[in-house]
């Protein structure tokens, strides 16, 4: 128990120290690298708090996607922050004091950390999600069953948020600004390094295979559509970085990406509509196999996880392409 507290406090202290350093740092490249570190430590903390799925996602998103995007933007803009005028600090300090004060005030009546008798733990929901779900859905990873079935609508919403982000980035950086001359130059010279080229070529199948494993293994262990999608995307990002954007976009043309972005929400909502047509409620997967509810749930969960995977991979890749195309055309 004490080791747990010790590790917990240490990780939190590292997090706070990193956050403070980031806030004081004016070189934004360094700050970006520190945010990656911050995410990595956060992921460790999530593991410590038994949230393995969340840790997986935070590692993939915070260390991977966010960092790549931030670096891309830094190469497009200035990487040095101007000095913050003293006057600006005051409102921030006041807001932080009030907000922090309210939170500390609230913490006096927050339940004890880790106690098994908190309202969260004693609510009948706990039993539904941990025990009842084994009969209703029959998937060991309860996070997956809550995510994809009990709270399937939230997950549809989450997928739509990703879709929205993809559309928004396309609208902002998309096909509009694409100077033709920029496409002629092969800018990224990483491809000249044989080691990189060969290693990337060898890694690609494994990355994609791992993504598929994560997608289909989400029922039994940490993982699922979102994590798989991010891994898929990171495979393409790596390919694009080493072999150049043109090659990457030949493999995955823009038009295909457009379709894939839209396929996910349509498929996910389509599953729900199919359930309605089969006589159930929206997203009631039981209707897929009327005799064996658990089997129906399995089919439904697999379908929606695949829908998430496809759209997340397509959105993340096209967001990366969007930023990277800007980088190339601005040189």
């Amino acid at each position: 128990m004490t080791t747990f507290v010790l590790i917990n406090v240490t990780l939190l202290a590292i997090l706070i120290a990193t956050a403070l350093t980031i806030s004081g740092m004016r070189t934004l490249y360094a700050a970006t690298m520190l945010t990656a570190l911050f995410s990595l430590v956060t992921a460790c903390l999530f593991v410590l708090l038994d949230a393995v799925d969340v840790a997986f996602t935070e590692a993939a998103v915070g260390v991977g996607i966010s960092t790549v995007l931030l670096l891309g933007v830094l190469s497009l803009t200035r990487s040095r922050e101007a000095v913050t005028p003293r006057l600006r600090r005051l409102p921030g300090a006041v807001v932080v004091l009030f907000t922090g004060g309210t939170l500390i005030y609230a913490s006096q009546d927050l339940p004890e950390f880790g106690s098994p008798t908190t309202p969260v733990q004693t609510h009948p929901l706990t039993d539904v999600y941990l025990r009842q779900s084994q009969e209703d859905i029959g998937i060991p990873n309860t996070v997956t069953s809550v995510l994809a079935s009990y709270r399937g609508l939230d997950t549809l919403g989450e997928l739509v948020v990703v879709f929205t982000a993809g559309v928004a980035v396309l609208a902002l950086l998309g096909p509009l600004m694409q100077p033709a001359e920029a496409r002629e130059r092969e800018v990224l010279d990483l491809v000249d390094y044989r080691v990189l080229r060969v290693v990337t070529g060898m890694l690609m199948p494994f990355i994609l295979l791992f993504a598929l494993y994560v997608l289909f293994h989400g029922d039994f262990g940490p993982g699922g559509g979102f994590q798989a999608g991010v891994i898929f995307a990171s495979g393409f990002v790596l390919y694009g970085l080493v072999f150049g954007l043109d090659r990457a976009q030949q493999v995955l043309p823009r038009r295909v990406l457009w379709v894939l972005i839209a396929v996910g929400p349509v498929l996910y909502a389509g599953v729900g509509v199919a359930n309605m047509l089969l006589g159930g409620a929206f997203l009631d997967y039981d209707t897929f196999a009327p005799d064996d509810a658990a089997a129906g749930q399995h089919i439904g969960i697999l379908l929606v996880e695949s829908a998430i995977g496809v759209t997340v991979a397509a959105v993340m890749t096209s967001i990366f392409f969007g930023f990277a195309n800007r980088v190339e055309s601005s040189r």
């Binding site: 708090l49 038994d50 949230a51 799925d53 969340v54 996602t57 935070e58 998103v61 915070g62 996607i65 966010s66 995007l69 931030l70 891309g72 933007v73 497009l76 803009t77 969260v120 733990q121 929901l125 706990t126 999600y129 941990l130 309860t142 996070v143 809550v146 995510l147 709270r151 939230d154 997950t155 919403g157 989450e158 948020v161 990703v162 929205t164 982000a165 928004a168 980035v169 902002l172 950086l173 979102f226 967001i319 969007g322 930023f323 800007r326």
Partner: peptide, 28 residues
């Protein structure tokens, strides 16, 4: 440990990165 907060935060992380991507695109 309780699965529900984890599910919520999975969703929230995704929402967070989506917002970040849009914000960065605007910054560019």
């Amino acid at each position: 440990s309780h699965p529900l907060p984890q599910v919520l935060i999975l969703t929230a992380i995704v929402v967070g990165v989506a917002t970040l991507a849009v914000g960065l695109a605007l910054a560019v």
